[in-house]
Design a protein around this nucleic acid. Structure first.
Lengths: 218, 218
DNA sequence: CTTCTTTCTTAATCCACCTTAAGATTATTA
DNA sequence: TAATAATCTTAAGGTGGATTAAGAAAGAAG
């Protein structure tokens, strides 16, 4: 084979092309983040560059785990591409999905991140995915360099809080059917991309019962 | 009667005593707050005075409502004495208790406070109570004057977030009996002070079923 | 002390949702 | 292409918890 002695011309060319493609891809990924941020806050061009440089790109294979329960979550992470879930495992080793996320969302065990205590949740890719991560300390520095970023995250945390509050009340006061209907209208794009048994887990019911619900509603 | 023409000597004396008592009482109430704060943060004497002056005392009769759903929650409030509940009312006018609070706790519709949107919850006194309130804007000023206070509230908000996360997971993955047992060990002091049907509401079950559970466990 | 209100209990009936188990589809991978 | 794994469906029987209705206790108020 040619590459026993070195790298063939074809090989060289394809590596070159791959590199070009990668650079192009990296730019596009960070642009997604900036676009996302500027939907809420205003950034100058210089600030956008600083922000972009503070994030690191991470690629995940399907089923790859980004955060394990027990670890301390040390990054905030923006989903540039793909689909992830945050779930927790009870004493009987049953999984309970807490949150899904797709492009443009943030996933994390926020409590672990905020308090620097071991995570109770796993965060796992459900598809081949790309996330942009910023380290806890780096973010604290960035808060000072780009104050608008602090505003952005304060709003993010507040929204995270209310989202949980709403979920708690829903689980306590609504039937599984009501919750499923709400899920379908609110997260139609997510429903298409994740297996049904995970939707069931998110809703707090068994896959069999969700199947029965769907049949009834048809 | 003597007080048709003015105030009798006895009347005058009792007013005087009442005033003395009130001042004494006010001091004690604010001291409770300072003691509470200094369990988490450090305050100089001067800072403690500034903080104390930023809070206003409010007395509530049993059943009096401190915050109505629909209003915008504009204060953080510390319970110095008594017992309150935060609850929300569903479409069928059923009440769902979100949180209890006694001396040393904070109660609020935090989302309304943080986002300045109309509250979804009511906050009501379950006993004659005393709360210490600080206005949103006053607190923002205080953050600058006494930085340790900002730290205190950041930690408070983080704890509020995790408390909700834990409750959501509990409601989703545990039986009513498990949740009741947990409630008893975690909030034994609260269980003694609130009616059983409110404990049921907090747990997301009917009072009848809670009664049955208690009978079974006896 | 009596009356009214609030709170708690009991019991019968009913429904939402779970469990188990098996088969049917649909993806993955060899 | 076959084989294995992952996912979805169906059906029978079981259970947790709701609903309704009635009465018992315990407070609060006149």
């Amino acid at each position: 084979m040619t590459f026993v002695k070195g790298i063939s011309v074809i090989e060289k060319n394809s590596r070159f092309l791959l590199t070009c493609f990668s650079i192009f891809f990296v730019l596009k990924v960070k642009e997604k983040l900036i676009k996302h941020l500027t939907q809420t806050i205003t950034l100058t061009n210089e600030e956008a560059v600083i922000v972009g440089n503070s994030f690191k790109e991470r690629h995940l294979e399907k089923k790859e785990v980004l955060l394990f329960a027990g670890e301390i979550s040390s990054h905030m992470q923006f989903i540039a591409e793909g689909c992830l879930r945050a779930y927790y495992m009870d004493e009987e080793a049953k999984e309970h999905i807490v949150q899904f996320g797709i492009e443009g969302w943030w996933v994390n065990d926020l409590y672990s991140y905020l308090t620097k205590t071991p995570a109770k949740q796993f965060v796992q890719a459900l598809e081949k995915s790309t996330v942009l991560q910023i380290n806890h300390d780096t973010l604290n520095i960035l808060y000072k360099e780009v104050p608008a970023i602090e505003r952005f995250f304060r709003l993010k945390f507040e929204k995270a809080y209310v989202a949980f509050q709403e979920r708690t009340l829903d689980v306590m006061s609504k039937t599984a059917e009501e919750r499923y209907l709400e899920f379908r209208t609110k997260y139609r794009d997510i429903e298409q991309r994740v297996p049904q048994y995970m939707v069931a887990s998110y809703l707090g019911i068994t896959p069999e019962f969700l199947s029965a619900l769907r049949k009834k509603m048809r």
